[in-house]
C-alpha cells in the first residue's frame, strides 16, 4: 500500500510538470527560464502578448528596468546615448542622424553623449511628426511615434540633440534632467518605457567611429571623435 501511495505521488508530480509545460508551450516553462538567455527566456511573441494585455511577467519587468552602472571611455569623444544596434548614420542638411534601435531585451536607460548643458526639452507627439514630415526612415517605420528631443549645448561639439522615440502603444518617455542642468558625459538622461529608437543628432564634421549594424552600449561605446570643423 505504501508503495502504491509513493507511486501515485510520483505520477501526480509528473502530471503537474507536464501540465505546466503544456500550458506555457511554446514559451519556456518556469523552471527553464533562469537557464536561458534573455531573448529565449522571454520570446518576442510572449512580450507582444503582454503588450496587448498590459500584464507583464514581474521578472521580465525587473529585467527590463535594470539600470547598470556604466564607465565612459578615457578617450575623448561622443559616447552612445543608448544600448542597441546602430541602424543608420545618414547626413541631412549638415546634421548626422545617428540612429540606435533598441530591442525588448536591451537596457532602456539613455545616457548623455557628451558633457553639456540642457538647453531645451521638446516633448512631441504625432503633430510634431506631421510638421517634420515623414521623410526620415527612422520615423516612417514607427506607428504614430511619440518622441522627446533633448538639446544639449556641449561647447566643443556645438548643439547636440538626443531624440527618444517610442510608439503610441508604449508612449511613455521619462526625461530626468531639467532645462539648465549640466550633464556629464555618460550621465543618465532618461528612459523609454518599451520604446524602440534613440537618435543622436550631431554635426556632420564629427568623425564616426562605428558603422551601422554594430552593437553599442550607452555611456561606454565611443561613437564619434573630433570636434566638427
Amino acid at each position: 500500500m505504501v508503495i502504491l501511495i509513493v507511486q501515485t505521488v510520483i505520477l501526480a508530480l509528473l502530471a503537474t510538470l507536464v501540465a505546466i509545460w503544456a500550458a506555457r508551450f511554446p514559451h519556456p516553462a518556469p523552471w527553464l527560464r533562469p537557464f536561458l538567455s534573455p531573448r529565449r527566456r522571454w520570446p518576442e511573441p510572449e512580450i507582444r502578448g503582454w503588450l496587448r494585455t498590459g500584464r507583464f511577467h514581474p521578472r521580465f519587468l525587473e529585467f527590463f528596468n535594470r539600470d547598470p552602472e556604466r564607465t565612459p571611455p578615457a578617450q575623448a569623444g561622443l559616447v552612445a546615448p543608448a544600448d542597441g544596434i546602430v541602424t543608420s548614420a545618414d547626413v541631412r542638411e549638415g546634421i548626422r542622424y545617428f540612429v540606435i534601435a533598441l530591442s525588448f531585451w536591451d537596457m532602456h536607460v539613455q545616457r548623455s553623449p557628451a558633457t553639456g548643458k540642457v538647453v531645451a526639452i521638446e516633448p512631441s507627439g504625432d503633430g510634431f511628426m506631421d510638421g517634420e514630415g515623414r521623410d526620415f526612415a527612422f520615423l516612417r517605420e514607427k506607428h504614430c511615434p511619440v518622441q522627446t528631443r533633448i538639446l544639449l549645448d556641449t561647447g566643443e561639439y556645438g548643439i547636440l540633440a538626443v531624440r527618444l522615440i517610442t510608439s503610441l502603444a508604449a508612449r511613455r518617455i521619462e526625461v530626468w534632467p531639467k532645462v539648465g542642468d549640466t550633464l556629464t558625459r555618460g550621465q543618465r538622461l532618461g528612459r523609454i518605457l518599451l520604446g524602440s529608437t534613440v537618435v543622436l543628432e550631431m554635426p556632420e564634421g564629427c568623425c564616426l567611429r562605428v558603422q551601422p549594424r554594430v552593437r553599442v552600449r550607452a555611456g561606454e561605446t565611443l561613437i564619434a571623435t573630433g570636434a566638427p570643423q
Partner: peptide, 8 residues
Amino acid sequence: LVTDAVWR
C-alpha cells in the same frame, strides 16, 4: 522536458 530544454 529534456528535449524541450535542448530545443531551446
